[in-house]
Every structure is written in structure tokens, then in C-alpha cells.
Amino acid sequence: MGLAKMVIQVEVGHGEKDVRFDDHSETNIEVKFNPKTLSVSRSVSWQSQKAAKRDAPELQYTSADPATLSVDLFFDTYDSDKPIDQKDSVFAETKKLLALAAVSGDKHRPPVCRLQWGTQAVFFQGVLIQIDQNYTMFTELGTPVRATLKCSFKQWRSNIDDRKKQNLMSADVAKVWTVRRGQTLASIAAQEYADANRWRDIAAANGIDDPLALAPGSTILLPPVRPSASRVIRAEDIL
């Protein structure tokens, strides 16, 4: 079994719902030397809620930042059988990575990338946000033959994939609803909450006086379902 090389797959197109990749695309980058380390970092924001007589204030989750992957990639064209004055420039390899930070064709933005390695398959998907080039060896003619590129990728996920991951179809999460022709607050409540009587909650959240007067194409806020208080069971209810 041969040595598995890490590959950076480069987006080949953007479909209606997600970006597209091709395992055999000529734009994919196979690293010549596998990295020694991979570093992944992520930060999450929690806001403290001030309260009297609390040594440790309650923390409320507010947001999360995309994960960042950092990796150092080594390139070398010196170790070849060519004479010293005919060594290939390492630019031929490093420029492929530089292209990941450039606006690409009709996408009007740099491409999305997937990093995959051996049995791990795709272990990170993101966009290149920083690249530091360090050229460390040159021939007598000034040709660069060794370089280390410090690359940072920020996690990227399509809106559809992110909604699936977060399970935003759950009724305990607030959502924005686009009204379709023929819909009423009751029909929306029945579809969203499985309870048509919750149309009052939607009306109250949006300041709607007439639940039947909904303009097609307008947007309304669907408030999250709040857990109701437990019902007290009386002795006479059991009999």
C-alpha cells in the first residue's frame, strides 16, 4: 500500500443548492510532502447575564465562529536529478495554492476547498483566508527551490447544509415564514406546530389583527414553542 497524500479539492462549480467538486479535476492540489501537524481552532461566544447574589453569572449562548484549520505545507524542487542550473522553480507548485485566494471565474469570489487525506476522506471544508510564503532555498541563478506555506482555512458550509445540521425544522426554534397564496395563520400553525389553535401565538408575535388577511409573498415570524407548565394532577382526576 502506497503512501496516502493529502489532497486539496478545489470547487469546480456552484450548483443550485451547493458547491460541486470533482475527484479528478485538474485544479485539485496533491501535496508533495504530507504535513506533520494540523491545527484546528474554534471559538464560541457566551454572554454573561448579570444577576444579583450570583458569584458565577449565568451564561447565555449567543453565536459561534466558523472553525479555522492551520497547516504548514512544504515544497521542494531541489531534490531532483536535474543539474543545479536547471532546477525547476518551486513557484510552479506554490502558485496553485495562491490561486485559492484569488477571485475565480464567474463565481466572483475565491473557491471553496475540501481537504481530504487517506481513510479520513474529507475532513475539512472551507475557504483559504490567509497564506504566508517563506522561500528558504535558492539556486545560484536565484531560482527558488524550497518553500513553506502557512495556510489558514476557515470553515464553510452552505445554508442548506447548515440548516440540516442545526435541525432548524424543529418547532422550538424561531423561523421566518414566507406566506404562499391561500395560507392563513391557522393553516401555517397546523403545518408548523401541528396545532391550528397556535395561530394566536403567530398573530401576537407579528402584531396581526386579521388572521385571514395575509399577503402572498410577505414574511412573518414563527415564534418558538415554549414548553408549557406541567399540569397538576388532582386526586379526583384519577378516580
Rank of each mutant, 00 (worst) to 15 (best):
D195G: 06
K175F: 13
A189F: 03
Y193W: 11
M169V: 12
P216V: 01
I202F: 05
A194D: 06
Y193R: 02
L185N: 02
K164T: 03
A190C: 09
V179R: 06
M169Y: 12
M169T: 12
R181Y: 06
D161W: 01
A215Q: 08
V176P: 00
A204P: 04
N206C: 10
D209R: 15
R198S: 11
K165H: 04
I208A: 09
Q183M: 10
A189Y: 01
D209S: 14
R163A: 13
I202T: 03
S170K: 12
R181T: 07
R198E: 02
A190L: 08
K164I: 05
R198K: 06
S170V: 14
V173Y: 15
I208V: 13
A215H: 07
Q183V: 03
W177F: 15
I202K: 02
Q166A: 14
N197S: 14
Q191A: 15
A189T: 02
N167Q: 11
P216F: 00
I208L: 12
D172N: 15
L214D: 00
D161L: 13
V173P: 10
D172Y: 13
D210G: 09
L212F: 11
G182C: 02
A205N: 07
M169A: 13
D172G: 05
D161T: 04
M169H: 14
A186M: 09
D201F: 00
A196W: 08
D162W: 07
L214G: 00
N167L: 12
Q183Y: 04
A186F: 05
A174R: 15
G207A: 09
A213E: 14
L168A: 13
A203T: 03
A203I: 10
D195M: 06
Q191S: 14
A194Y: 01
K175S: 15
A205W: 06
K175E: 15
A174W: 14
W177I: 09
G207L: 04
A186T: 08
W177L: 09
L212M: 14
D161N: 02
V176C: 09
A203N: 04
R163T: 09
